[in-house]
Nucleic acid binder design. Structure first.
Lengths: 113, 113
DNA sequence: AATCCATATATCCAAATATTTAAATATATG
DNA sequence: CATATATTTAAATATTTGGATATATGGATT
């Protein structure tokens, strides 16, 4: 049996293919950002914030989940860079740091379906 | 202590905020698509395929991972709708079903960083 | 052509690891 | 001191990895 037609990978081709990939570091970073998006609860939070700033307490109320659960998701979104926040006394107001991010997400899903 | 300023959620506002969210079903589906992207190995595969069709055997070789591992990732990408494939004898040639998908991913990470 | 063999890919399974959830507790603010 | 939020922690669940095995295909041999 011959090798596959696209294959026949010479050592040079193989090296080139590997070199053309983004760095391991870059790929992990990108995956982290996408992981932050890849959860229904966090997508909900981002959708809610499309209309503007919200207090954590309000997000908890709308989602109707325990406070530590919501806090955890907010922290992940914050760490991934999706959220800005503002402290006002005890309250923390969150907003999207990139208001158009959900449009990009929509574009991905529209492409796929 | 007064309630937070954005908060003060009347029952009506709360209901409206919940109604304006995409359906649970839609959110899970979107999360599934994003999960398929949110992995360094799968990002690598998608990057490799930007240059055109590749045989599974070649992907295994470039990634230098055990065959079942690569097969698993290919199946996830297939199921999420990112890959088309073509059987040629024993070989399976994979290609991107949406060749521009990685540009959208790049846009997300560029927005974030 | 029937059988056997080698190879490509997929599936099964279990272990390792990561993520999600939420109760308990800590911290911060007024 | 009461309340908003974060952190700690542990359990439940999901994902990733790769060995073992199954399946599929096609070449070789009889």
């Amino acid at each position: 049996m011959k090798s596959c037609s696209t294959g026949e990978s010479s050592a040079e081709k193989l090296i080139k293919q590997r070199q053309d990939l983004p760095s391991e570091e870059n790929l992990y970073a990108t995956a982290e950002i996408l992981k932050a998006l890849a959860d229904p609860t966090r997508l909900k939070i981002l959708h809610l914030l499309k209309k503007g700033e919200l207090c954590a307490c309000e997000i908890i109320e709308v989602l109707d989940k325990p406070q530590p659960t919501v806090s955890h998701h907010l922290t992940l979104l914050k760490n991934a860079g999706f959220l800005k926040w503002r402290k006002e006394g005890v309250w923390i107001h969150y907003q999207l740091s990139h208001p158009d991010i959900m449009e990009l997400v929509d574009q991905i899903t529209n492409n796929i379906n």
